[in-house]
Design a protein around this nucleic acid. Structure first.
Length: 125
DNA sequence: AGTATGACTCATT
DNA sequence: AAATGAGCCATAC
């Protein structure tokens, strides 16, 4: 990913449309307890858009500009890999945040991923 | 308005 | 086991 010369227009910047889906995503992510992680697919599934994990990724992309902050570092792909780390302020920020929360990360992958996996479909059922 | 792209995932080859 | 194709759908151009 690269920066464009012009400022990116993020979806939430335009409040003329209904972006409740994004807000729902942020709401779920904010409920992920410290020391746990979830996945794009699980969140998408919980929100009823089972096959639209990409949209959850978009919501994360837009999450940096919302308040209160969304712990986007707790959302990884289904293999526990930190695929979104390049979108953080620095290349290591995502991993550092996870380590600080007690989650073991090795080579961009969460160790014992299944043990720290937090599934909204189960926890928020 | 049509094409391309992506913080994804699943099925098929 | 690794690569490929397809589904997904909102943005960007």
């Amino acid at each position: 990913m690269k920066k464009t010369k012009t400022a990116q227009k993020l979806p939430v910047a335009d409040n003329s449309k209904n972006y409740s889906f994004f807000e729902n995503v942020w709401d779920v992510v904010r409920q992920i307890p410290e020391g746990k992680v979830s996945t794009y697919g699980a969140i998408a599934n919980y929100l009823g858009v089972k096959s639209s994990a990409r949209m959850v990724g978009w919501a994360m992309n837009a999450s940096f500009m919302v308040s209160p902050p969304v712990p986007a570092q707790r959302v990884v792909n289904r293999n526990g890999i930190l695929t979104g780390k390049v979108h953080f302020a620095t290349a290591t920020l995502m991993e550092e945040l996870l380590l600080k929360e007690g989650i073991q990360v090795e080579k961009d992958k969460i160790v014992h991923f299944t043990k720290v996996f937090w599934d909204p479909n189960v926890e928020l059922a």
